[in-house]
Amino acid sequence: MKGRTLLRHGKEGMKNLGRNGWMSFASISAVTIMLLVVGVFILLIMNMNHFMDSVEEDVEVRVYIELTASDADQEELKSELQQLKHVKDITYLSKDEGLDQLIASLGEENKEVFESLREENPLNDVFVLQATDPQLTAKVADQAETLPHIDKVDYGKQVVDQLFNVTKVFRTIGVILVLGLMFTAMFLISNTIKLTIVARQNEIQIMKLVGATNGFIRWPFFIEGLLLGAIGAVVPIAVVMGGYHYLYANFADRLRLQFAEMVPVYPMTIQVSLILLAMGTIVGVWGSIASVRKFLKV
């Protein structure tokens, strides 16, 4: 194809947007609304995921050291723990610190009862392990259990298993919803575009009759679809970027006090914007080309 022909297709595609004013407007609106819903939903799901990540991060393995273990034994145990697979982090919690935490967690009224324990602390010294991946916590605990000088290993098996089950269900639902929504959006958008092109069946027929090749007819529609999608993505992207920025600035600190982190504005909003732009243009082009193809078989 000659360069000036490509230029002609580009211009023609743009002009067609104007020539089919209301139809273009309908298509762009469909793209805008659907991408808006998809965009907001992706942000929600990503924040939910982020929240579940942080909950899972809190899962830890407590290795209770035998009361009889000497300092040397403890050192040895620590280095052995460090060599275990999937261990990200080890912190040492002496029985005194443990008691401090316990007393603090029990509140004022019981404080005195436990203060008396300070003389004869019944707690163990503890190594707190974090797995490289929360899902691997059980494995780390099993490995740790085999080591010497250990009283017991605990990671709240019941609770953790349940937690992971719950997060898994939520994540799956999230993925299904996003995919379903994306699919619906694509279907609706391409259908709207198809309707606008059906109205131009005559136009395509005439192009064929004056000897336009199928490629020649398709190009302006390709560009038109691309523009419809890209223009339709503008508002959703602005809302995602601006809206999330606003929410983050106003609510992130307050939520942090409730132990819920929001996903930082960047790079997430950029990624979501790119997804929306890609969806818009792909669906625009697809809807446009697919419907033209039907009429090319004259």
Binding site: N202, E203, Q205, I206, K208, L209, V210, G211, A212, T213, N214, F216
Partner: peptide
């Protein structure tokens, strides 16, 4: 087919203008 049609001009009852 498009190359054939370039050698033939067609005029219709309903004009078929864009």
């Amino acid at each position: 087919v498009p190359y054939l049609r370039r050698k033939i001009g067609v005029v219709f009852q309903d004009f078929k203008l864009l």
